[in-house]
Design a binder for these strands. Sequence first.
DNA 1: GAGTGGTCTAGACCACCTT
DNA 2: AGGTGGTCTAGACCACTCC
Lengths: 240, 240
Amino acid sequence: MSRKVPAGPEPQYLKVKNFLREGISSGRWVAGDLLPSEAELGGQFELSRMTVNRALRELTQEGLVERVQGVGTFVAQLHRISSTLTVRDVHDEIAERGHQHEARVQLLEKTKATAEQAAEFGLRAGAVLFHSVIVHLENGVAIQCEDRLVNPACAPDYLALDFASTTPTNYLLQVAPLSEARYTIESTLPSDAEAKLLGIARRDPCLVVKRTTYSHGQTVTTVRLTHPGSRYLLQGSFQA
Amino acid sequence: MSRKVPAGPEPQYLKVKNFLREGISSGRWVAGDLLPSEAELGGQFELSRMTVNRALRELTQEGLVERVQGVGTFVAQLHRISSTLTVRDVHDEIAERGHQHEARVQLLEKTKATAEQAAEFGLRAGAVLFHSVIVHLENGVAIQCEDRLVNPACAPDYLALDFASTTPTNYLLQVAPLSEARYTIESTLPSDAEAKLLGIARRDPCLVVKRTTYSHGQTVTTVRLTHPGSRYLLQGSFQA
DNA sequence: GAGTGGTCTAGACCACCTT
DNA sequence: AGGTGGTCTAGACCACTCC
């Protein structure tokens, strides 16, 4: 068992992972099948149990297999195609495509929280919130309208910032370490104001991402990101 | 160092993970900061390096920290809020909400591939494809129109199936082990046919998921899932 | 050369499930 | 009792980076 582990280009645990991945995606094992135990795989590959364990643990986390203590490892039901959807800072996203980003600040003001907003921020109705509306352009074309409410307790100098150079997302992540976020994605029509700002018709469908982020258990900000359906889509992929 | 590791309710590596997570979400360490090395953490917690390594490895995979060999472990830039978006079988999704699912088969036919479709399936133009259109209802309300093309080579008996009892997604996952999938999510208007089938107006925005799945390097199926924007949304969350 | 992370081992103890 | 996975150790060698 004392192999001179070359630790070459491909680690041993990856060989095990690939062996199993291959077996699953080729149909050699199908959903529900019992896979070889750690001991068996360790024998076949001449590896210690810890190394095999790592391979199987990672496959579990990737959702490809399911493990039951005392029973064994099974091929997972792949009834869910899950993948990492990344909601990112617009600036980064545009920059990564090699395009030019421009932000136009349409509004930057203090406002008083409605009862609903106050509840979301854990403040009392009428408390002061910061409110900004910014249109983001990619190579001169409006692709996102960002309508945001900010908790002044988390970012007291929000109104004094220059959003032509930093995005609110970027700034807020710096002043308030992100601990949790919730979002929804839906398809709706833009408001009159949004349609005007984005240069689209009132009846053009939009992809709307609503997001609330928390830090230290406090609500930092809520944002509504409206994207013209004709100019924006989310994409992702899944790999077995 | 020979502690009687109680392996109690909380594993040791989780203690390390939680310690670091807490430090990051509380702002004790901010993006870019250098975290204690494996050796340091091992000393503080009286753990072996392997155990600490596991904690840090998992945090890396969760996107919370970044590691550079020979340099150290740093708090990651949380410029991306990523979470697992799960695109699931409609039936499961509805059943999980405790609601009733009904599938109405609107169309089930052979068709000849257009040049574009043929290219997607790796077949020649005019090759036979199976085509189905099914409307899915949740408690009697149409929430999804599923327009699907299927590669006959992967599911020869597709046309003979009873989709009132099994969904195409479910069936196809069984006959063709999923190896890869790609999808996009966008906001558009429904076609005339879709609007009619979903019982909505032609100008009601829809959330459309397009998905192509592969098995053994073959294209198994392409599907367009159209959801009335007023009745469907995707949601997710992110936890630091 | 000293410090870092990346990997691997050959044991170990435990909890759990099946028999 | 015997097999399974879940965790942990105290070493080890390597590749990499920084000084």
